[in-house]
């Protein structure tokens, strides 16, 4: 990304360019690298694997993008995934879809609590969602009796392994549909515009008579629900409900994807396409490192470096303005 910055004439415009499109450039770079150095990278099978693997992070990142757009943050997404995983097996007797709905209702409660703390009580988002990050997972463990369960529901198995015409896996389709819904929500609805206005200048939004509290509450509920769906995808992939570890540290990947994708941590803008690209970039970077036998510890350091660079680029915007 830094090479792009230097190549362009003006520092301000170069930075702005890097903010808007840096993630796509980086994605091209990583593809180019693999094209030359990694064997069997550009195969349908590999791409299918990468896309299937990225789906949970991507879905969580969609909700995270909305929350960050309001100048908030949601650290409790991992707990929401665990909650969905914990509740699902309890109701599978009624069939997969009823059980999934019950699980998502339970998860929505985490969003309600987050949203209420942030919007009505006025707790800082990082504090409120940190509390739920810990308490939510605790609750999930209580619900599940702190037990992992094998989940062998036929519908779930079909969803996790099946695909359309052997090419498009159902989970990837699910991810694509959710991306579409959230993109419409952000770009074409009143809700989306108001959400961004709150992040851009909360005081002005309040003075313009926007229902600020209601919108914030909804945003945190949507974030929790998306995390819950990601939790169900996680259960499907493992064919098991493991509330103690499912979704651990996923908030970091999600935040990175969002920020790398051009949504500033200070809010006021939401980039859904960028978020998708950000999630894919993280996925392909870690895949590249694995394929080149780089130890996992190193790949974590690389992720951290990406966060720092992305946040630096986003911060510079405020300086150049």
């Amino acid at each position: 990304m830094s090479t792009v910055t230097i190549a362009l004439p003006r520092r301000g415009s170069a930075l702005r360019f890097a903010q808007r499109y840096g993630v796509y450039g980086a994605l091209v770079l990583i593809f180019g690298y693999n094209l030359v150095f990694t064997a069997n990278f550009f195969t349908l099978a590999n791409f299918r694997t990468q896309f299937v693997q990225v789906i949970p992070v991507l879905i969580v990142a969609l909700g995270m993008a909305l929350v960050i757009g309001t100048e908030g943050i949601d650290l409790s997404v991992g707990a929401s995934m665990a909650m969905a995983a914990a509740v699902l097996p309890l109701y599978l007797g009624y069939g997969f879809f009823p059980a999934a709905i019950v699980a998502l209702v339970a998860v929505a409660m985490i969003g309600v609590i987050n949203g209420t703390l942030v919007a009505a009580v006025g707790v800082q988002p990082i504090v409120a969602t940190l509390a739920l990050m810990v308490a939510g997972r605790g609750l999930a463990l209580v619900v599940s009796g702190d037990q992992s369960k094998t989940v062998l529901d036929p519908v779930l198995l079909e969803l996790s392994r099946g695909s359309i015409g052997g090419v498009l896996p159902y989970t990837v389709l699910l991810g694509a549909v959710l991306v579409g819904i959230i993109a419409v929500l952000v770009n074409l609805t009143t809700f989306g515009k108001q959400l961004v206005a709150i992040g851009g200048n909360r005081r002005a939004a309040e003075l313009a008579g926007l229902p600020v509290r209601r919108i914030l509450l909804l945003v945190y509920i949507v974030s929790a629900l998306l995390a819950g769906i990601a939790g169900l995808v996680g259960v499907a992939r493992l064919s098991a409900s493991v509330p103690s570890t499912l979704g651990n540290l996923i908030e970091l990947s999600a935040i990175t994807a969002v920020v790398v994708g051009g949504t500033p941590l200070a809010g006021g803008r939401v980039k859904i396409a960028g978020t998708v690209a950000g999630a894919l970039l993280l996925q392909f970077i870690s895949a590249t490192l694995i394929k080149n036998n780089v130890p996992d510890a190193i790949s974590q350091i690389v992720q951290a470096a990406i966060i720092v660079v992305a946040v630096f680029i986003q911060r510079s915007r405020q300086v150049t303005r």
């Binding site: 074409l188 200048n201 005081r203 002005a204 003075l207 006021g268």
Partner: peptide
Amino acid sequence: EGIVPELSVRDNIVLAALPRLSRAGFS
């Protein structure tokens, strides 16, 4: 307290009136 700097002139003008200018939640 007034402008939302990130948003366009259009979005700033319609900020308060958005719900009136929308149909079924779609702007």
